[in-house]
Design a protein around this nucleic acid. Structure first.
Length: 270
DNA sequence: AGTACGTCCTGATCGC
DNA sequence: TGCGATCAGGACGTAC
């Protein structure tokens, strides 16, 4: 489900639960290929056993647990969630993997759709391979952002979802940001001026920071991040059929870009 | 290389 | 109430 704000909230939740400094005692996987994929993946994930978590980091939607020897990558896909279980709590429905850490701290990877991924890597670089700069990384300057779209003929919407260009932006916040800066999702990337790109980067960050602050102030009674849904009223753009542009008050239109639905205003977004 | 599209998987929701 | 069609916030492989 998650985009950057949800993943960052998940990372902070795990840190609050005290997973850093603990060791993986056991990992029980559901007997289906997911959430492990690829040849030899099961034997590789077994490498995390006995390893201590030195830190828990994130780039874009990818969580990385840096171990004392290797790195575990966690990606929640579209429906993945991690839940720390109470001492007599049994694993919930759709649990695909169950970790036991030092002192019997148990964490369930719950993922109805089985698109979450667990992977073991030798190095941090391998774990982050193919990911561009994190959307909130200050090293991603406006100029660098502009540069990454130079010579691109594709439409801006699918490019914003490309994690090798900017990591952490998903369908919701892409639409939200484009609306904020009045750029149409079908605009060709090489048709957008430099200044608009700089405004777009700011808008992306505002959307993400706003969402992160909202999630952090709405944790559930067990301290877990609230699962945001697409119709959440804190979004400017209400992603549902029949909703209206908050500026023009005319109905939003939808358009699919390689299978992903964009909501936008055909009047103010050019 | 860059772009466009199909596919992975399963639950929830909507219309008949 | 039941059932099929459609949709879902992600990412990757493939073909051009």
């Amino acid at each position: 489900m998650p985009e950057l704000p949800e993943v960052e909230s998940l990372r902070r939740y795990l840190i609050r639960e005290g997973i850093v400094g603990r060791t993986f005692d056991q990992i029980v996987l559901e007997d289906k290929p997911s959430p492990i994929s690829g040849t030899g993946a099961i034997s590789r994930i077994a490498n995390v056993k006995g390893r201590k978590i030195k830190s828990l980091e994130r780039r874009g939607k990818q969580i990385v647990a840096v171990l004392d020897g290797g790195v575990m990558g966690l990606h929640m896909g579209m429906t993945g969630q991690l839940n720390v279980l109470g001492s007599d709590e049994s694993a919930p429905r759709f649990t695909r993997a169950l970790f036991t850490l030092t002192n019997d701290l148990r964490i369930a990877l719950v993922d109805p759709r089985r698109w979450a991924k667990l992977q073991y890597f030798e190095t941090l670089n391998q774990a982050l391979k193919g990911l561009g700069p994190d959307a909130l990384d200050p090293d991603l300057t406006g100029d660098r952002f502009v540069q990454s779209f130079r010579g691109r003929t594709a439409q801006i919407k699918p490019l914003l979802l490309n994690q090798s260009i900017i990591a952490g932006v998903g369908n919701i916040y892409a639409d939200e940001s484009l609306h904020r800066v009045k750029i149409s999702p079908d605009r060709r990337a090489d048709d957008i001026p430099t200044d608009s790109y700089k405004a777009l980067l700011l808008a992306i960050r505002e959307s993400l920071e706003h969402a992160l602050a909202f999630i952090q102030s709405n944790l559930d009674d067990r301290g877990r991040p609230y699962i945001v849904d697409a119709h959440d009223e804190r979004m400017h753009l209400l992603r549902k059929p029949g909703s209206f542009c908050p500026r023009c008050e005319i109905p939003l239109v939808t358009q699919k870009f390689s299978g992903r639905t964009a909501y936008f205003c055909s009047n103010c977004q050019k």
